[in-house]
Amino acid sequence: MDAIDITRKNIKRTGQLTNKGNIWERMLNQKELILMSIPFVAYALVFYYLPLAGWVMAFQNFKPAKGLLDQKWVGFKHFIFLFSDKTFLTVIRNTLAMSIINLALGFAFSIGFALLLNEVRQLKIKKLIQTVSYLPHFLSWIIVTGIVLDALSTETGIINQLLMYFNIIQSPINFLADPKYFWGIVGFSNVWKGTGWGSIIYLAAITAISPDLYEAASIDGANRLQKIWHITLPGIKPTIFILLIINMGNVLNAGFEVQYLLGNGLVQRVSQTIDIFVLKYGIGLTNYSLATAAGIFRSVISIILIVIANYAAKAAGEERLF
């Protein structure tokens, strides 16, 4: 019996059985499908749901030498500490701000870059630009931040030298010492590293747009900009929405390395993210419970954000995740 037949049969039977509501019979009828999905369900259980048991650590005073259940229970103590701590509230603000900046810049630059690249008619040049542009993605942050630190140096940094050369400033600016520049520096570091890579998905989506539409538009006398605005952008809109929803879940993951490596004492009020807080107060002081509590907080907020974004998309009549 071939696969299509099974599916058809199942659909038919499902239709009938839903009315009767006998779930066991229904499962028996779909046993091939269930068998096929078992490995994936097991994978998800083992690697995504089982580790959630570790969340109990957040309600204990966890000491690594003892077993998970031999620990002292402390209730919501760690959560109370988190929310009464001024630093934690600051790091939430920083994380949110940098995430939103990254998200906005990331979308704008990736989509813009994909649109521009799509307009390049020379295939070889297009391929070359594409390859070169996503190379930074493969550099580790330690290298990228090294480049950024050197580029922003007051002595040898190219940015200060250029600004001085064009007489925009009279004396070098120490960008890294001033809190007001920090979020921008992080945002543009992310853009430098991620634009090329981020645009791949949009380029793929653009190739799926039917050439007929462009042809028809040309016949109607549309110019390039009009074609981008009326065909390309609406064509990749579903992709944009799906990615936006997925990324909403990552809003509290503003990153760790870039802030950790670029930050310094003078800007720590704006540079520390939740991850850095966890490393310092949780792991650095062997308080894994506090680290777990901060992790739970972040996961819960992320889930809420995803759900909200999803419903917003649904209400707007756009593509959505679930």
Partner: peptide, 28 residues
């Protein structure tokens, strides 16, 4: 040996934060 569930453990980390920020400010 200090951990984050002691007032002195937290004081130590806060001290780190405050000095990291303010000593450069004072010098500059």
């Amino acid at each position: 040996t200090w951990t984050a569930d002691t007032p002195y453990g937290i004081a130590w980390k806060k001290m780190d934060d405050v000095k990291h920020e303010w000593l450069p400010k004072v010098v500059m």
